[in-house]
Amino acid sequence: MSNFAKNETLKTILKRRSIRNFKLEQIKDEELLSILEAAKYAPSAMGQQPWHFTVIQSKEVIAKLNEFGKKVFLNSGVERFVEWGKAANFSLIYHAPTYIIVSGDVNAIAPVNDISLAIGNMFIAAESLGLGTVWIHAVNHLKAIDEGRKLFKELRIPEGYEPFGSLALGYNGGDIPEPAPRREGTVNIIK
């Protein structure tokens, strides 16, 4: 644990939490560009860098995403998602002012892994700048409905690329959650 106390990067990793309550205030352009630059420096299989970042700050487009997300949740058949979709204040991205969809070249060696690493870099960069993030897996379900696929085309996601992950980004508007206890028995060290 002593290394964590001395190293800023390790402290940032330990401090980061998923935030699900955002202020309405938009993030600064410099913060956004720094986070995107950190994403572009993520490791990728064979250095392919198969990612494409679609940043959405338009309230109209976010409203469309919420509409389609609500439809997906209400028709999911998963009780928890159906209840969430029924909520009067439903927001696919927890009312965050910025939403980033990360797409990957489907012909790349390991696009899911590469996209996950890029999003991880964005999480750590955002935390270091005092911003909150949360992974939004629902983008994967939007691919399953016509409206979602049409919206992805409107958002100019490149041909041959598919959304693999996304994140909500903004200033934390609430309490920072306590970390869940770490599971035991997850490490084997063989010397």
Rank of each mutant, 00 (worst) to 15 (best):
Q49R: 15
N113S: 05
I35Q: 03
E127G: 11
F90K: 12
L167Y: 05
I109L: 14
Q57W: 09
L117P: 00
D146E: 10
I190K: 00
D146M: 03
D29N: 15
N7V: 02
M1G: 09
I27F: 05
P158K: 03
L36E: 03
N3S: 14
E147H: 03
V82P: 14
K71Q: 07
E60N: 11
K71F: 06
L167F: 08
G132S: 07
A5M: 09
K11D: 07
L155Y: 05
K6G: 12
K59N: 06
L24V: 12
N66G: 03
A88V: 13
V55R: 01
A118V: 07
G47I: 10
K71V: 10
V72T: 14
F73H: 10
W51H: 12
L33C: 09
G77W: 14
V78S: 15
G173P: 05
E159V: 08
Y161G: 09
E60Q: 12
I109F: 15
N113M: 11
I100D: 10
K86V: 06
A38C: 13
F164L: 12
A126G: 01
G120L: 03
V106G: 01
F81M: 13
K143V: 10
A144N: 10
E25S: 07
G148V: 04
E37D: 03
I190F: 08
N121I: 12
K191R: 04
K86Q: 13
E31Q: 15
V112H: 11
I109D: 14
R156M: 04
N66L: 07
L10V: 11
L24C: 05
G174Q: 09
G47W: 13
Q26V: 04
S76H: 15
V139N: 12
E162C: 08
N140W: 03
Y94E: 12
W51N: 11
I35H: 02
R17N: 03
I101T: 06
N121F: 14
S44Y: 04
L74R: 15
S166K: 07
Y161V: 02
V82S: 07
L32E: 01
P163Q: 05
A125I: 00
P97E: 08
E83H: 10
I124N: 13
G173F: 06
G104A: 01
Y99C: 00
E8T: 13
P177K: 01
K70M: 03
N75M: 04
V139T: 13
L24P: 08
I109E: 15
I145C: 02
K28V: 06
Y41P: 07
R182Q: 10
N75I: 02
G130R: 00
G165E: 00
R16A: 03
I115P: 02
A45Y: 06
D105H: 02
K28A: 13
A88G: 14
G165N: 01
D29Y: 08
T9H: 07
F152T: 07
Y171A: 00
E67G: 08
K71P: 01
R20A: 13
V106I: 13
E83N: 12
L24R: 13
I13R: 04
N172V: 10
